[in-house]
Amino acid sequence: MDPVGPTVLIIGAGISGLAAAQKLHERGFRNFRILEATGRSGGRIRSRKYAKGLVEIGAQWIHGPSPSNPVFQLSTQYNLLSSEALSEENQLVELEGHPMFSVIYSSSGKQINRGVGENVVEMFSSWLQKSREFTKGGCNPEESVGSFLRQEICNSYSNWERDSLELKMALLSGLFKLECCISGTHSMDYVALSSCGEYEMLPGLDCTFPRGYESLVDHIKASFPSDNVLLNKPVKTINWKGSFSGSDSRIYPVQVECENGETFVADHVILTVPLGIGPVIWENYGKVISHRLHCNEIIKI
């Protein structure tokens, strides 16, 4: 490692950690290393060959492949996408992060009446759009998207025809589950209504990587020396604002200790571990407060 310049440690060799290393290297930094807890880099991006194709074990596609999407920009730079995904027409499609429905089938394999299906999807989409309008206030801070959607159903279902009521409720149940997948949550009751509109949905039809999502990881890693990535280094503690001696006799403000007792010193640390939003929040310097939203479950969906 070059002894000149600040020493930087990056915790985590997922896409964020690798991208941070790439940016540092592009700007002339050479004294950086990535500490990765596992025996591989890439984080939640993992592609594996299967039969004559491949399987994405982690991330699968680019959501909103258009110029405003940094993943799309990198993938285009490295020529990793198909010509269809790169077409201007594909990049301009506005789906707001949701799939298109041309044909809908029931669990028994029966095709659903197209008019009924389109009507339910249109209703649900309008309610979702309405839920995004509370970012500037107008709702209880503890209200969830789930409770809001159920209330919209209650306000509407009395006007539905009786012979289609059961079918519409079944379709709505499926759309609820789909929205949980899109929002990355177990329940829409865990998605706050007051802030859901802050998420920006980019245009473009979702696309995959012909050579696997991990091809993007490989190209990013190739932009800096491979020995900058240290695998099997699970971090236990980060000590900062201290005075720690390095092997070069310098004093560093940060010391990172791994689970095996090995230590690394640095001037700066970039932490890129995934910060999941769970059913708890931290408040008052680490006090754990239960944060389960208690919503009115008039309709069980």
Rank of each mutant, 00 (worst) to 15 (best):
S82A: 12
I62K: 04
K52I: 04
T185C: 01
P210G: 08
K52S: 13
S226H: 12
W61I: 11
G138D: 03
P203N: 07
R250K: 15
V55Y: 10
S247G: 12
R292D: 09
P203T: 07
N260K: 09
G276V: 13
S41C: 03
C139N: 06
A37H: 02
F148N: 07
L175F: 13
V121T: 07
C180D: 08
N232W: 08
S215M: 08
Y50K: 09
C207R: 00
M1D: 13
D218F: 03
E36G: 00
S156R: 08
Q111V: 06
V103L: 12
A19E: 01
S82F: 11
V288A: 12
L81Y: 02
T208W: 05
T7V: 07
Y285G: 04
I62M: 05
N119L: 11
F101H: 12
R44N: 15
P141L: 06
A13I: 00
C295R: 04
E36F: 00
E200Q: 08
G115E: 05
I112D: 02
Y105V: 07
L178E: 14
G117H: 01
P65S: 03
A222Y: 08
R114E: 11
N159H: 14
Q77S: 11
G64F: 07
L81E: 01
S41L: 00
E143C: 09
L205D: 00
L35W: 00
G174I: 09
K168Y: 07
R27G: 05
L275G: 15
S107H: 15
N284T: 11
E283C: 12
K287Q: 14
L92F: 05
L275V: 15
P234F: 00
V235N: 03
I270W: 08
E118M: 02
N31D: 08
G5L: 14
I270S: 09
L193F: 04
S147E: 11
L230G: 08
N260Q: 09
E214Y: 06
V8E: 05
L202V: 06
V273T: 15
K241P: 02
P65A: 00
T76I: 06
N31V: 04
V280Q: 15
K110S: 10
S243C: 06
Y50V: 09
C181F: 13
Q77C: 09
K236Q: 15
A59W: 05
I299N: 03
G58Q: 09
G58I: 05
K287Y: 11
S173V: 00
G53F: 07
V71R: 01
W282L: 12
I182T: 02
I289Y: 06
I277G: 14
G97D: 07
G197L: 02
C196G: 10
S83H: 10
I270M: 10
E257L: 10
S102I: 11
L54N: 13
N260I: 03
L216W: 07
R250I: 11
Q151A: 15
Q60S: 10
D227Q: 11
S147N: 04
D163G: 12
I57S: 04
G42N: 04
L54R: 14
S195D: 14
R162C: 07
L74K: 05
L9P: 01
S131L: 03
